[in-house]
Amino acid sequence: MLSLAENKSDPRILNYLGYSHRKMGRVTVGLGYYQEALKADPNYTLVREYLGEAHLQLGDVASARQQLSEIEKRCGKGCEEYAELSKQIDAFEKTKS
């Protein structure tokens, strides 16, 4: 369905392309779409959340925390994206300890 979108450079389309690739196990392909979405809209916090989750899938906690920090700058600790990525980071770190 996403390939039928009229504006394939829309950050929402890029985000969900990244999400779908990541969920199918093609994390590095997903990362590329997330980066393109951020080029179009650096304030898109949902893509930052998903990007952080992708970094966790790759075992890169520092990059996930960087995205958490970027989310906090844009919407604070009270927004849904911050809460979800923070929860994912905590869960990841518990499995590593």
Score class of each variant (00 low, 15 high):
residue 54 A to N: 11
residue 89 I to T: 07
residue 77 K to Y: 01
residue 61 V to S: 11
residue 69 S to M: 07
residue 12 R to F: 09
residue 26 R to G: 06
residue 68 L to R: 00
residue 83 A to V: 01
residue 41 D to C: 15
residue 51 L to V: 00
residue 72 E to P: 11
residue 11 P to H: 08
residue 60 D to H: 12
residue 65 R to G: 05
residue 7 N to Y: 11
residue 44 Y to N: 08
residue 80 E to N: 13
residue 88 Q to G: 04
residue 31 L to M: 15
residue 11 P to I: 05
residue 20 S to N: 11
residue 11 P to Y: 12
residue 95 T to E: 13
residue 54 A to H: 05
residue 76 G to D: 13
residue 96 K to P: 00
residue 80 E to A: 15
residue 96 K to R: 05
residue 81 E to W: 04
residue 17 L to P: 03
residue 76 G to K: 10
residue 78 G to W: 00
residue 89 I to A: 09
residue 5 A to P: 15
residue 55 H to F: 05
residue 86 S to G: 06
residue 74 R to Y: 11
residue 14 L to A: 09
residue 26 R to K: 13
residue 64 A to G: 08
residue 53 E to V: 10
residue 95 T to K: 15
residue 73 K to N: 01
residue 83 A to R: 03
residue 66 Q to E: 13
residue 97 S to H: 12
residue 96 K to C: 10
residue 34 Y to G: 02
residue 46 L to Y: 09
residue 82 Y to G: 10
residue 8 K to N: 07
residue 23 K to N: 12
residue 50 Y to F: 02
residue 22 R to F: 00
residue 67 Q to K: 14
residue 58 L to I: 04
residue 59 G to Y: 01
residue 53 E to F: 08
residue 49 E to F: 15
residue 80 E to R: 13
residue 39 K to L: 04
residue 4 L to V: 12
residue 58 L to C: 06
residue 90 D to S: 15
residue 18 G to Y: 10
residue 60 D to M: 12
residue 68 L to N: 07
residue 65 R to M: 10
residue 23 K to V: 07
residue 29 V to S: 03
residue 48 R to A: 07
residue 97 S to A: 07
residue 32 G to K: 04
residue 16 Y to K: 05
residue 91 A to F: 04
residue 80 E to L: 07
residue 67 Q to C: 14
residue 8 K to R: 13
residue 84 E to H: 09
residue 30 G to V: 00
residue 96 K to D: 05
residue 94 K to W: 14
residue 15 N to A: 13
residue 87 K to N: 13
residue 96 K to M: 12
residue 12 R to N: 14
residue 17 L to E: 07
residue 55 H to M: 08
residue 73 K to V: 00
residue 97 S to W: 03
residue 73 K to A: 03
residue 30 G to Y: 03
